[in-house]
Amino acid sequence: MTTALPGGDEHAPRWLTDDEQRVWRAYLHATTLFEDHLDRQLQRDAGMPHIYYGLLVQLSQAPHHSKRMTELAIDAKITRSRLSHAVARLEKKGWVRREECPSDKRGQNAVLTAEGFAVLRKAAPGHVAAVRQAMFDRLSPEQVRQLGEIMGIMAEGLQPQGSGADLPWLR
């Protein structure tokens, strides 16, 4: 639908064109399938969901394999509550531990354990293969460049401005 609602409301929504609707639905379909593909691969091969893998990666790349819980929530784009639950599950597996934050007694750090790092090292080759097979092997180098540019533009436009942004991972 490309026209405004009856009555000539100047504040009517700008409906998606047929082409935009097609692209939007293709995007939703592909991203849902892609996330499911990665989640199933990691569950099958490493016994963890994709979100847990992402948390382990974040910690593995942090100085001393440690990151404040608040920062980890922001980087993972998940609520602090969801992060707390995920870290509790990772603690039960022995892959992460919590420590008091030395600079702020109210804060906690999540720390990747040696066992967690070993699990991540074992899971990484299969995960990279799944990403490569599902995405990069299907695209030409030019399409990869374009996709990176497009995703960068979208992320920049969605990035919150200012400290008052109402984002779930800041709550």
Rank of each mutant, 00 (worst) to 15 (best):
I150K: 09
D45I: 11
P63F: 08
R138S: 14
P125I: 08
D9A: 14
V144M: 13
E20V: 03
A130K: 01
D18V: 10
R82H: 05
P102V: 03
Q58R: 07
E20G: 03
L55R: 03
Q41W: 02
R98C: 07
R40V: 13
R80Q: 03
Q133T: 15
A118G: 12
G126S: 13
V128W: 15
L147W: 11
A123F: 01
Q108C: 04
M1V: 09
A26F: 08
G107K: 07
L147T: 12
V23G: 04
L90M: 14
N109G: 03
D9T: 09
P6R: 07
L42P: 00
V128Y: 15
T70P: 00
L112Q: 02
R171T: 07
V131K: 04
Q159P: 00
R106P: 03
R25P: 01
L170S: 04
E100H: 12
K105W: 13
G157L: 10
T2V: 08
R44V: 13
A76W: 02
L5M: 14
D19V: 08
P13D: 05
E91N: 02
G47F: 02
V23K: 11
W95L: 03
Q133P: 01
G8D: 10
E99L: 09
A118K: 14
S66G: 12
E100M: 12
K105E: 14
V87R: 03
P102D: 06
L72M: 10
S66A: 14
R89P: 02
T113N: 05
S66D: 09
T32K: 10
K93T: 01
A130S: 11
T70A: 12
R80F: 02
V96M: 01
G116Q: 05
Y53P: 00
E10F: 10
Y53L: 03
V96P: 00
L55V: 07
L139S: 05
P49K: 07
K77G: 08
P168R: 05
W15Y: 12
V144D: 11
D18H: 11
Q161M: 14
S140L: 15
Q21N: 15
H37K: 05
R106F: 10
E71F: 00
V111P: 04
Q159V: 04
Q43W: 00
S140W: 10
G152F: 10
S163P: 13
Q43P: 00
A62E: 04
L42Y: 02
G94C: 09
E149D: 13
S163A: 15
L158N: 07
P49L: 07
D166Y: 06
T17V: 11
K77Y: 09
W15V: 04
D104R: 12
G94M: 12
Q58L: 10
T113L: 07
S81A: 14
K92L: 08
R138D: 13
P168K: 05
H85M: 11
R40M: 11
E10C: 06
L120Q: 00
Q58G: 04
V144A: 11
E100W: 11
M135H: 08
M69D: 01
